[in-house]
């Protein structure tokens, strides 16, 4: 592969991952509307608190998956792995777009789990596999 492709895939992956990080941090601090959207009109405080905790756990897990990916990326484990770069660009860009709609249109907070599944867990798991390959078996892709 030529150097040009490395040079364009790596920064684009970095920019997409950081934009996903931005959107997740934004929803972390302004989540009231989304939580109200998944409760019935006359909700009790207890129900709100339960949903709030549930959602917070989801966002924190997404941030942890993102952090492992950032560590793998900056640690040099998956920096030059092209298939992982492409996979991560596709899933994170879709996740960023979906999360922007999630915030702007205040979607139901249960829908977050679908976005979480497809845009945080999937690239996170492939990243963890790559990190284990590099650290455990010393196999660079």
């Amino acid at each position: 592969m030529t150097r040009l492709e490395y040079n364009s895939l790596i920064p684009s992956r970095f920019l997409i991952v950081s934009s996903h990080l931005l959107v997740l941090l934004t929803v972390f601090w302004s989540r009231e509307e989304n939580i109200k959207a998944c409760l019935e009109l006359s909700y009790s405080d207890e129900n709100y608190k339960r949903k709030d905790t549930e959602f917070l756990v989801g966002v924190s897990l997404a941030l942890i998956f993102l952090l492992t990916e950032i560590i793998g990326f900056f640690g040099g484990m998956s920096t030059y792995c092209q298939s992982q770069a492409l996979f991560s660009i596709v899933t994170h860009s879709l996740g960023t777009i979906a999360m922007s709609y999630f915030i702007a249109d205040s979607w139901d907070c249960d829908l977050f789990w679908w976005i979480f599944c497809f845009s945080s867990v999937m690239p996170g798991i492939t990243e963890i596999v790559i990190i284990m390959q590099v650290l455990g078996m010393n196999k660079y892709t």
Binding site: P11, F14, L15, S18, S19, F74
Partner: peptide, 14 residues
């Protein structure tokens, strides 16, 4: 060097 390169890219996004 890594911080400078990716900091530059992040600044473009910013």
């Amino acid at each position: 060097q890594i911080l400078l390169v990716f900091g530059g890219w992040y600044y473009i996004l910013y």
